[in-house]
Design a binder for these strands. Structure first.
Lengths: 354, 354
DNA sequence: TTGTACGCGTTATCAC
DNA sequence: GTGATAACGCGTACAA
């Protein structure tokens, strides 16, 4: 016994032997669902397990049960607040379910998504959440096949944000949010807009662009396509986008809408570096409402997405049994802050040619 | 064959049968390390695998090999930029090694750390990285036992930041960084300080406090212990801390050092809400150099830790075989920004007693 | 209620 | 170089 105590990696066998019961009994009290075990034996087993410092081997459990207790989460960049907030929601909800979260990051190349899905599938996770999938993907068929195989084996798939893949999707109404933002800005008196968007094909960005343009049109305004610059979907991308706008001359622009908050924050910096004061010389708006935007100056107008709730709901969506049709879209809400004051507060800027 | 093609979850058996070879051969070509397989058979197997959409069951591999391909990462809060940046480093490095990262979050209660370590151990990860462990923990013995058991079974442990646990540790010299910061601030002309620290026992915070005080003393200054307020190690904690400082009257304080950047950002907001202008009425400094602090106004003086590198190095530390003694501490660097102008730029504030 | 025996999908040790 | 076959640690009929 002393030898057993010292040696680690006690197996269920060891526990059973130590407790003087059968393997099956030990299994039942330690991991079994139906509690049909005599209390006398139960105690014996529990004590033995504690004494041997037994830790169930989840891999073995998984192969035996044919089912794991992990959820795989695919993001583009875990350091991006958008994704880390979603991840936070997934992790906390998974925790409540006794599930462990595996995170993989595609990085800048969306092509890696397929590859990672393939790898993660090997883990046979109970659910797979795709939050990175923001591209109207040319690789869609292959990805779709992969996910279908996964589901055919009992796995659950949940996709965050609308794309056309035929799986449970948690819709985030980017278009409607951008539309509402445009109308709110129009109400504030803004008339001339520019936008810093992501690359074409990035559905999140495309939807927000489309919604924004629609909202403006609904207000009798237009978004000149020449005033839409494309850039990376990152802070530095936003910086670069604003730099280009400034270079092209923003003399007749009153407001720049960045396709997401990190871009907007970058745009803020670029604008300052160019000698302008955001919220006074030019208004800026973003999208997502990441925590940071409360703390930049001026505080950023944006469209709020409850990101942690998105994470939690994505997991629930995958886990629960119900009609997929009942899945309501995540509500978005326009949040007006200092970066978009009433137009009258904006100081007219002198024309600044290229 | 058609039936096989349609049915998913093809097993290695299926592939072997489809290819007309033995299980062993199939295993060798698909997953084996030593490539001692005839090319003719090799092709057969590879083709069959592709046709059946075979995906190796990592759980089964793990039970058979007694070793997984996952690394477990323990953080306090994945939505906190400090941790998500570290996680980013871990994930990217793990990716290079073909490893999958599992993330668990302890949340505000450090007691959960032990519990989570226990759970994660069940996964038999190849390495376990503790980044959350910032408390001089009363639960240290139990935690230490748990980790020791884990290592005794071939697992690797890496701990981020100094604590006294007897495992491979990636030292982050918080004390030295804070010391250097204090001296730099003294050089700028600052003389009267306050600090917003985390709860006592939070080693990260304690070390930074100690280092800061030491740096001041080295410059012939002192940090009055009455000027040290304790608060949550979060953005809102920083806000609350600054609120209390203001309430107590900060008439003779020139600079507030927050124990980390998110707190400093909160402090910035609180200061503004109280009617003061940070960087003009009062200087503020933080610690970590999270991405955000470049973009707040004024940009925040801080001590830079290369967080993604911390993540990468932590994984390497766990993975590599070498003398633990050779592990150099992560370099920190003082970064002076607008939130701590030369003291002459600070406007004298009128006394504001409670 | 408890124990026996088999199966989960792979790897690894043998002989061949 | 290849193929049986025994592990790996555990769940779970099935029988007792």
């Amino acid at each position: 016994m002393d030898r057993e105590t010292t040696r680690s990696g006690a197996t269920l066998q060891d526990v059973a032997r130590e407790a003087g019961v059968s393997l099956a009994t030990a299994s039942r009290v330690l991991n079994g669902s139906t509690r049909t075990v005599n209390d006398k034996y139960r105690r014996l087993v529990v004590d033995a397990a504690a004494r041997l410092d037994y830790s169930p081997n989840l891999s073995a459990q998984a192969t035996a049960r044919g089912m794991t207790t992990t959820v795989a989460l695919l993001v583009a960049d875990i350091a991006d607040p958008y994704f880390s907030s979603i991840a936070d929601g997934v992790v906390s909800e998974a925790d409540r379910e006794g599930l462990i979260v595996q995170i993989a990051a595609t990085g800048p190349e969306p092509a890696r998504e397929l590859e990672l899905v393939r790898t993660l599938r090997g883990q046979r996770p109970r659910v797979m959440i795709l939050a990175a999938s923001r591209h109207s993907t040319h690789a869609a068929p292959a990805l779709s096949d992969e996910l279908a195989s996964f589901e055919a084996n009992g796995g659950r798939v949940a996709i965050v944000g609308g794309n056309e893949l035929p799986f449970r999707t948690l819709p985030v109404d980017n278009a409607a949010g951008a539309d509402a933002l445009a109308r709110a800005l129009a109400t504030l008196g803004y008339r001339r807009f520019a936008m810093i968007a992501g690359d074409e094909g990035l559905t999140t960005s495309d939807d927000r662009l489309r919604g924004f343009a629609a909202g403006l049109e609904g207000s009798g305004l237009t978004l000149d396509s020449e005033r839409v610059v494309r850039s990376d979907f990152t802070r530095d991308g936003g910086y670069e986008g604003m730099r280009r706008l400034v270079e092209a001359g923003l003399d007749d622009i009153e407001l720049v809408f960045a396709a997401n908050d990190v871009m907007a924050v970058g745009a803020l910096a670029a604008l300052r570096d160019a000698g302008f004061e955001p919220g006074r010389d030019l208004a800026i708006a973003g999208f997502d409402d990441i925590p940071t935007v409360r703390d930049v100056t001026p505080a950023l107008t944006t469209v709020r997405i409850p990101l942690d709730e998105v994470g939690r709901r994505a997991l629930r969506l995958a886990l629960d049994d119900f009609e997929p049709a009942t899945t309501a879209a995540v509500p978005t809400a326009v949040v007006l802050r200092g970066s978009t004051p009433a137009i009258s507060a904006l100081t007219p800027r002198p024309p600044s040619g290229p």
